[in-house]
Design a protein around this nucleic acid. Structure first.
Length: 267
DNA sequence: ATGGTTGGCCCCCAA
């Protein structure tokens, strides 16, 4: 039996917040760490941080200013994706990698789904259209390639369930919780994945991983959303052991608006 | 109904 802990965090600029990765790894002790919104081109990637956090194996796919994903690992990583092309764009929103431990090979998918802009109408907002197209493309991909021994993590920018937001009623027209997005995300998930966070904390418990910067006191108002996810392929359900949301990270100095989430499996 | 904040970059865009 091998224990594996995987963490995911939208860091909102790796170069600005890389020191926080020391606290993250001390607290959650991940074997694999997936980041989104690194906002750093590959030739400027801060490689030294990998050794400092004890996760020396790294893969990254970054670009200037926007997007960017990276995977840090205790174990050697093998690139396992189709080049990051989704919706005909090369915009650094996905990185796939596999690791072998205890004789088993596990594949990790690290996603950064488009945020989708402000107007939830595909005819008026091309960013929203891109978001809907993106989650349809990923759904179709996993329909054609049913997941096995697979862990999917990332900032999916959608809070799919009623209690994944502070007010279901007030957010039904707000991008991240509209019916088109939530049914789209659940359709993607239904291609063979289990929602690990809700496996341990079913509704109606509230679960949030993101709190807007535009609140004077995020903890007092607590208007959160669950935008960050960890799914496992259904064959890994018996291996699920524990999930954690590092809510305190929202109070770190110069915090990201997202907090880290972790899953531990016994493989 | 509106505005509120942050990061990156080149004065505005995306979130």
């Amino acid at each position: 039996m091998t224990r594996l802990t995987i963490a995911t965090w939208n860091i909102n600029s790796l170069r600005l917040r890389q020191e926080h990765l020391l606290t993250l790894t001390e607290t959650l002790a991940p074997d694999i760490l997936c980041l989104q919104e690194t906002k750093v081109p590959d030739d400027q990637f801060p490689h030294a941080i990998a050794e400092r956090i004890g996760l020396p194996h790294v893969l990254m796919r970054g670009m200037k200013s926007y997007n960017g994903v990276a995977i840090f690992s205790r174990y050697p990583l093998i690139l396992a994706d189709q080049g990051g092309q989704w919706c005909g764009k090369n915009d650094c929103r996905h990185l796939g990698a596999s690791v072998t431990l205890g004789g088993k090979t596990i594949t990790i998918d690290n996603f950064y789904v488009p945020a989708g802009g402000d107007i939830p109408d595909r005819s008026k907002n091309e960013k929203f259209a891109h978001k809907l197209d993106f989650i349809a493309a990923t759904r179709d991909h996993f329909r054609a390639h049913p997941p096995q021994h697979r862990i999917l993590v990332g900032d999916l920018n959608i809070a799919p369930l009623e209690h994944d937001v502070w007010s279901h009623k007030q957010l039904l027209d707000v991008v991240s919780h509209t019916p088109n997005e939530t049914t789209g995300l659940l359709d993607w998930q239904a291609q063979g994945f289990t929602d690990a966070l809700r496996h341990f904390t079913p509704e109606p418990a509230k679960l949030y991983t993101w709190w807007s910067y535009r609140n004077r006191d995020w903890r007092a108002s607590n208007r959160g959303r669950r935008l960050d996810h960890i799914w496992v392929s259904n064959d890994l359900r018996p291996a699920l052991r524990e999930t954690r949301i590092l809510t305190d990270a929202r109070d770190w100095t110069s915090a990201s608006d997202h907090v880290p989430v972790a899953l531990t499996l016994a493989l």
